[in-house]
Design a protein around this nucleic acid. Structure first.
Lengths: 350, 350
DNA sequence: CTGAAAGCGCTTACAG
DNA sequence: CTGAAAGCGCTTACAG
């Protein structure tokens, strides 16, 4: 009782279940029962333990609990994405968060910045924390540590992509079909010189969108010109600069643009305005963008539904964690183009 | 060697350090040494252990390691915010993520949606995982479980707010001063009927911004009219509707608006366009918004620097975790207004 | 250079 | 209804 000197050492030791037990004069197991609201403890002991918990400010250590519990109830899931600063991903994250919260489960997340190595690190850090499940929007087409982890029975939902040779649940948009729709939309307005601006094609969705573009251009009997294709991983301001430089330098300037992602769309619209080309150059983008109906002309887009993607992926994951054992689910979400003006600018010769 | 039946049981048991030890014919401790790249192990044993690790696909359990290690190296930090779907917060998160990654540390995060109870749950779930530090943008002015946790020596950085009666590191924007600047900016253009649209004032930053607005209006000898103040927690579309209804219903319509947050700005700009008031109603917002220089008129804003806030908060937190023991740091970041047109619309009588 | 024992904070499986 | 023992997967502190 006279260890005041000890008690005042800087970070006062955090009370453990053992401390609560001795303070309440009961066994460890009794404290465990009370803390976990198991029944079969007399009212008096419950009260005594609860008083001790209060007095000491005891909080159970979830790591220790989880360590012994093994595969009781999902305690945490992990989400690996490209860049949380992109609203597309943060909206997915928000959807996942909501589902995880409903299941009283912690959500770990991180951005890979499109770097496959960084992604592998992320996934490994999730795995080393023994997450109960994973949702992944992969960078690159390597599965890295994911495949091995699936062998251990960890359910994985792939978002916005479709890994080869891997049986797993998938939720994604129709990138290929969407790119075809957008490209046809521009072709039907008379454009023959169409540029494509997008993420690095090593990202699954970006690659498929580029494929859809190429295929549609070729099918229209046009040639795909490589200097009309610009890809990379940039933020809106960087895209603005890139696109401006490109439009100024390109030998023959396209009369229409496909922008394959929200940051690209924002940068490209700004670049067109900077060069005063916004009323003559058609543009349709993937992803909706804030204020796109207020800009002149309005920005035509094929919107994704990131919040819905996130919630759906979360639902599927928890279904698996709940024991669902059916064949892999594969959901492909299509969306129609929203016409706001920029995509309906017709080609005018000369 | 003949337990094939056992091996095929559905989720094959994850190999532990003990499995590696027996496969390599060494002790637990030797495996631990190799896995943690401690020296003092003969080349031959290192090779044998590494072979076994490979063969079994062994991955250390970070929870168990962390449990025994106690306060060795920061393993994880937590970030509680209002809403990750808001780019302001996701940009902060991205900044924090970068710093956490530099320190090889896991970042946990979650959204409270402005609900203090939800925030307490979040913080408690972080604490029960024994995060080594916290970064918090609080909802409401209660510290909930944070204060108790700080007593245990867990460093906390408060972001974008300033809790009363709590010694802690703080990084935030100058909400009060910013609101004064914005309001004066509009007053100096001749406006006397100025509306304020913002987050629920129970959120620290929102409250301070409203205070700054009120004070400046009063100092100008004007009366603060309650029906010119609209607050709440909505997304851009909801704000668009709210603002439209409000502008249509309000007895005397303001000629200028202060929008205290990015989602509000987006919704309000859309509402002004919907009602064709955008060329006559002045508007200055907190936070920058995509495409704000492309809209007509351009949207004047007092930009925050969320990425910088996040990185700065992360740096401070890891400084504390590194043992820095100085007095609380208090950084207040000021920004100038970016004039793009909407804020410079002068009041025209009649 | 290598290892056997004890412990981190909790839960499981079993006794009484 | 209550508890003593063993264990989760690792590390620390100590021997040899």
């Amino acid at each position: 009782v006279n260890n005041a000197a000890d008690m005042n050492v800087h970070p006062p030791r955090r009370p453990t279940m053992r401390d609560v037990a001795s303070a309440a004069g009961v066994s460890l197991k009794t404290v465990s029962r009370v803390v976990n609201v198991e029944d079969g403890v007399s009212g008096e002991l419950v009260a005594r333990v609860e008083r001790a918990v209060q007095a000491l400010g005891y909080r159970p250590d979830e790591r220790a609990r989880n360590l012994r519990q093994g595969d009781a109830r999902p305690a945490s899931i992990g989400f690996a994405m490209v860049d949380v600063a992109n609203p597309f991903f943060s909206a997915i994250l928000r959807g996942l968060e909501a589902v995880a919260h409903e299941h009283d489960c912690l959500l770990l997340s991180g951005s890979s910045d499109g770097d496959p190595d960084r992604q592998d690190q992320l996934i490994e850090s999730f795995i080393s924390r023994r997450v109960d499940g994973l949702v992944v929007v992969p960078s690159g087409d390597q599965l890295g540590p994911i495949a091995a982890e699936m062998l251990h029975g960890t359910p994985v939902v792939f978002l916005d992509c479709e890994p080869r040779e891997q049986q797993a649940d998938i939720v994604r948009s129709d990138h290929f079909g969407g790119a075809i729709d957008i490209t046809r939309h521009l072709l039907s307005r008379g454009h023959t010189k169409i540029g494509f601006l997008g993420d690095d094609p090593s990202i699954f969705s970006a690659g498929l969108r580029l494929d859809g573009f190429r295929k549609t251009i070729a099918e229209a009997g046009l040639r795909v010109q490589d200097d009309w294709i610009l890809t990379g991983h940039f933020n809106p301001n960087e895209w603005r600069t890139k696109v401006t430089q490109w439009l100024e330098a390109v030998e023959e300037r396209p009369t229409a643009l496909v922008t394959a992602q929200n940051f690209v769309t924002i940068g490209a619209v700004q670049a067109l305005h900077d060069l005063d080309l916004h009323h003559t150059t058609a543009l349709v983008g993937f992803d909706d963008v804030p204020l796109s109906d207020v800009v002149e002309p309005g920005i035509s887009v094929l919107p994704q539904q990131p919040g819905r993607l996130g919630r759906r992926a979360g639902k599927l994951l928890f279904q698996r964690l709940d024991g669902f054992d059916g064949p892999p689910v594969r959901e492909i979400i299509e969306s129609p183009i929203i016409e706001r003006g920029s995509g309906e600018i017709a080609f005018t010769p000369g």
